[in-house]
Structures are given as C-alpha cells and as structure tokens.
Design a protein around this nucleic acid. Structure first.
Lengths: 197, 197
DNA sequence: TGGTAAGTGGAGACCCCCGTCCGTTTGGCC
DNA sequence: GGCCAAACGGACGGGGGTCTCCACTTACCA
C-alpha cells in the first residue's frame, strides 16, 4: 500500500471513531469523508461497506472490553473485579454514542473470537464473586446484558451527562447486586443472539 | 366529518399504535396506510405530518402515565405508590417500542399540560416516601428520568422479553432505592429538556 | 526523469422516506 | 335518484442516504 494511501486510511479511521462517538452510527459516510479530507470513493475503497468501517472502528473498543475482563479475573477480590468490569464497560459505552449500536451491529461476525471468551470470563468472575458471598446468589450472567442494554439507553444526551448518569446507574445497580435478600423476578435469557433479533 | 372518514381515521390510529408498538417510530407512513387499507393521501389529510400522528397515537399512553401517578398519590403507603409508579410506567414503556421515542419527540408541545403536573406529582410522591424513611434520602427526582432512559434501552428485543427484562431491572433498581446506605455519585440533572438536546 | 500502477474525487445511479397534487369515487341530503 | 362536497388513492417531487463508475492525478522505482 502506498504511503499516502496508508495515511489517508488512518485518518479516515480516526475521524470515523470521533464522529461515531459524538453523533452515533448514523453519521453519513460523506460527513466522514469530508472531515477526513478525502473523497467518498477513497473511503469506499478502503472500507467497501459502511458496516466494515464500523466494525474496524470499534474492534479497539471491543478488545478493551476483553482486556477489562481479563484484568478483573486476576484481581484477588472477585467482588472488586466484578464491580470494576461493570463500571468500566458501562463508562466505555456511555462515553461513546456509537458503541452500543456497533456492539450489536458488528457482533455477528466476531462470534467465536471475542464473544465466547468474554462471556466465559464474565461468567467465571460472577461465579467467584458468588462463592465469596459478596454477589447475590440469584445474579445471572444474563444480567450483564441487561445492564449493558439499560446503560445503552443513556446515550443520546451529551457525553458528560451520559457518563455521569452511567456512574449513578451503575452505583444503584451494583448496590443491588451485592448480596441482597429480596425476591427477584427470574433472570431473562438475554443472550446477545436474541438481542440481535 | 363523514362516517367513512371517521372510521378510516380510527382505523389509521389503531394501526399506527400497533405498528409503533411493535416496530418503533420509524415505520414508514406508507406501511401504516397500507395496513389500514387506505391511501397515503387519506392518512396525510387526517394527520398533516408524521409527528402529529405520533402525538395523537400516544396521548393515550401519556394520559395513562399521568393516571398512574395520580393514583399512586392516593395510596396511603407512599413507598408502595412509588414502586407502583416505577413498575407500571416502565412496563408501559417496555411493552411499546415507540413509547420512549414518542415521549421525547412529542413532549416539547405538551409542555405545561402534562409535564409539569407529572413531574410535580412524582416529586411529591418521592418526598413522602422519603419522609416515611422507606425511600433513601439521596434519591433524586431526576433519577426517574434515569430509570426511564435505562428502561428505554431494553426496547429492541421482542416485547415479551423486553417486559420480562424490565421487571427484573425495576426490581433491582427498586431494591437500591429502598433506604440504602452506601455512598452514591451525585444525581444527574437529567430533566427532559436536556434529554431533548 | 519518465512510465505506470496505485490512488483519487466527484457526479450520479439507486433506494427509501416524507409530504403534495389532482383526477376519480362516494356518502348523504334533497 | 341525483347532485356535490367531501373523501379517496396513487403518482410524483424533493431530499438524503449508500455505494459505483470513470476520467484524472500522484507516488515511487528503474
């Protein structure tokens, strides 16, 4: 690949990440191209479809999620690890307006690679936190999806507000997750497959 | 208004409510017209703009919200009233995919009539529940908006799943709202004005 | 320094949606 | 039954989105 082409590609990706973060996934491709200082055709040469651009732009974020879970698994205190995961992932999601949409839009392809591992890791973490009696016994791993979806509902307001709201929501939820006693409705099997219709 | 016209209008409204509920607000006007068995022009004669159709279709739901709060205010147990409000409104929202969008889209006009009253009623209810010591002191009325936004994030999955998820989310949140002790991040002034950008 | 393949940009094809125009049909009163 | 305003429906204009085609430009190597 030629040098100028490589640089253009990188700039497009950067701009795409910025715009997706601040305005969501429905920014027109033309807007991305304009702000990156390239023509539309250039953009489409590097990313044959909008979906491919989205996926590429967010793989970094997904990897970050993975890293958060991996790191939490090394925490000697499972409950602290659990809280960290919820808080960090939610904050990641709240500070990037396109994140949730990219998550559900880009996931079908990242099937085996990230998804399985993330899910497995989180399930293990939750189990450990239950074993130490800090996480309530009726917590379901599906509740992670519940939290993610709920937290995703906070997008749409300006970012600072969304992150502040996310913090408060997480605090509320984590307080409930901590070994509570009251009866709860049954967990909803909100696996990602079902979220994707 | 002629008899057939009146009937057509009613059918359009019914169909619109159905479609908005199951597919969200972005169903094309043509789809509504087709399913109602009328031409597009007929639809536009009764509802000059899509927004007017949306508003008309959802006034019923908004009135229901108002009724829920009014009724809760008569409950001798403020905490029970508080819980009922949250649960019912969330369920209303979860069972209708267009509800949230209609809420933010149609509200600017319903300014004084419904909004002020709803907000005032809920604030009063929350204060009473605090006074009896059942609702945590650091609960903010803005947390209602937080709950609504979070709950709105659950839309997008099939309705039965969304309602089940909503129940579980509400149960978690209400458990936290009940006189807790842990420190919480400050409330976010998520008034509806700000949600509307 | 010149040739060439890789790179580029903008016009436009295609599609979907909102809202309008106008010729045709129909309900309901005399 | 006949008249006419009210009601109707489909074709169409306008706008905005994704993606393609093609004539032009430019980096890079011999």
């Amino acid at each position: 690949m030629r040098a100028d082409a490589r640089e253009n590609r990188a700039r497009v990706l950067t701009v795409a990440r910025e715009l997706f973060a601040e305005r969501g996934l429905d920014v027109p491709m033309a807007a991305i191209a304009r702000r990156a200082g390239v023509g539309i055709a250039t953009l489409y040469r590097r990313f044959p479809t909008k979906e491919s651009l989205v996926r590429e732009a967010f793989t970094e974020q997904f990897a970050l999620c993975q890293a958060v879970i991996d790191e939490a698994l090394t925490d000697p205190d499972p409950w602290r690890g659990f809280c960290t995961v919820i808080e960090k992932v939610c904050l990641l999601q709240a500070s990037d307006r396109g994140f949730t949409a990219a998550f559900v839009a880009g996931f079908p392809d990242l099937h085996s690679e990230v998804r399985e591992r993330t899910w497995h890791g989180f399930t293990a973490l939750a189990q450990r936190a239950k074993d130490t009696g800090q996480l309530r016994a009726d917590f379901s791993p599906h509740d992670l999806t519940l939290v993610l979806m709920a937290n995703g509902g906070l997008s749409g307001v300006p970012v600072e507000m969304a992150t502040a709201a996310s913090k408060r929501l997480c605090a509320y939820l984590l307080e409930s997750f901590r070994a509570g006693t009251d009866e709860l409705p049954p967990p909803v099997p909100l696996s990602l497959d079902q979220v994707l219709r």
